[in-house]
Write a protein that binds this DNA or RNA. Sequence first.
DNA 1: GTTATTGCAAACCTTTTGCATTGGC
DNA 2: GCCAATGCAAAAGGTTTGCAATAAC
Lengths: 163, 163
Amino acid sequence: MTSVTNDFLNCFLQFMNRKGLNTTSQRCAIAAAFFDLPGHHSLEEFYQHIVRQDPGIGQTTVYRTLKLLCEAGFASEIHFSDGIARYEVAKPNSHHDHIVCLSCGKILEICNQRIEALQRELAASRDFTLSGHVHNLYGCCADCRNGVGNDKGRAAEPEDLRK
Amino acid sequence: MTSVTNDFLNCFLQFMNRKGLNTTSQRCAIAAAFFDLPGHHSLEEFYQHIVRQDPGIGQTTVYRTLKLLCEAGFASEIHFSDGIARYEVAKPNSHHDHIVCLSCGKILEICNQRIEALQRELAASRDFTLSGHVHNLYGCCADCRNGVGNDKGRAAEPEDLRK
DNA sequence: GTTATTGCAAACCTTTTGCATTGGC
DNA sequence: GCCAATGCAAAAGGTTTGCAATAAC
């Protein structure tokens, strides 16, 4: 476990204390795996990963703990175009923008201050108070375009977890 | 039916002819309703709207015709944060960007050439061939902020969209 | 001991498909 | 008449919930 994971985990423990929630071994294992696993994964993917090192755990608990992590502000639920919810670590200054390769499922993070500024402008011009945004670009990465891609078909299988 | 609807409908009839598909009364009724109904609606919403004026129609046919309209390039499937697919008329120069009010569900279209340009730049810098994008801003409209809103309670809970 | 949590199983909801019937051509 | 299209019903697949057993405190 990295020290960053450990820091996040401590914050989550504090959150549970503040809320009067029990700190169970399952919640700790799930949160640790969540913080330790980079990328954007579905409930099923997290469950498959966690159950490998902790076979007694239930999918429902993973589901509920991910929701809890969202509620605590440590996780964000994101939706790409396939309708499956994915979860990622909500870094304080992250902008949750992505480029998704529709051929191999690769997901890259993008961040552009000028776009952020234009978003704020647009929201202001419509008199909206902005609370969030989703910004995903879809296309084909260089590897897939050149036939180097691993044509797995989108939506990662369990093996993809460490991409 | 507006003349624009009629134009779209004719194009769709041509598409069906080209593809050798039968032009059935159901397909025409569904396509007409689709072109005539402004906004972004789910399968269920279209079905409810269409079945009102044509009670014999089946949800499956609405589903399949919407897919057909997508295939023909007349419709686009869009995903907001609640995981339900919505369909909208794919106008040739539309950019499919939206501002969504999380309180009343109001959806406004937005379009910004500078953001489009920045998207192309970003994709190029990652060596991606861009085929599409999703860009939605979430927040609270002026009406809802001032308590005038009609609190329909559409879509996502706050934690879905945390930024 | 009391109350929260777990995890199985089942419900739920949207999307998709199988198949016998209907209808366009 | 032939084959595509329809629509019922049910499957599929992800998400959510009820509840008895279990574990935290």
